[in-house]
Design a protein around this nucleic acid. Sequence first.
DNA 1: CCTATTTATGAATAATTGTTCATATATTCA
DNA 2: TGAATATATGAACAATTATTCATAAATAGG
Lengths: 98, 98
Amino acid sequence: MNNNMDIISKLSEFYKVFGDNTRLNILYELLNGGKYVNEISEKLKMSQSAISHQLKILRLYNLVKYEKRGQSVYYSITDEHVRGILEYGFDHIEEIIK
Amino acid sequence: MNNNMDIISKLSEFYKVFGDNTRLNILYELLNGGKYVNEISEKLKMSQSAISHQLKILRLYNLVKYEKRGQSVYYSITDEHVRGILEYGFDHIEEIIK
DNA sequence: CCTATTTATGAATAATTGTTCATATATTCA
DNA sequence: TGAATATATGAACAATTATTCATAAATAGG
């Protein structure tokens, strides 16, 4: 996330984060409440490592926050703004995609 | 664009289209009015071929429409809905990206 | 017609990105 | 402390995607 990139470049970078099936699935899971890494991993039937790698990117873009609880790490959607963007997407997908 | 893909998969596919710098730049150019392929190519300082390949994808997702005019092809944003999505992005980018 | 111009496209290549595999780190509990 | 559990991470590999290069197709003008 270089600071000198222009606004379009930053915007496309942002869309790119949502433009991955795994990451969007993770975000969707978290819309219904925070979860531990292993819960996400089980729900999506994907390896813990793959999930962890993608969570790192979601963290980098401040789309999720996390909280250490014992051995586990609890992830949730960062704030209502991110939630709004996601819900906008889910609600309008039918109109958007032909 | 397979019909059997679930909604999240389709949504991520949709975001992916916006998640490319070249495509988003093309869309941004077209926000200020339709243009010919060579005009886009010159404005973005990119090869005609690269632009044409990306226009094909934008066409596939119905984000742009085109019209043959003599030897040239005139491209423009498909409709006000697409325009709205783009303007939402440009307007909110500051809040979205930290 | 023939040439110049504009756009599209297939194939090859380059670049980027996601997943796996192996392992490190951190924490809990016996 | 040692074993078990949960998560993170680097490197290798696989997969995907963007660009270039060469060329085809379509049209306009001489």
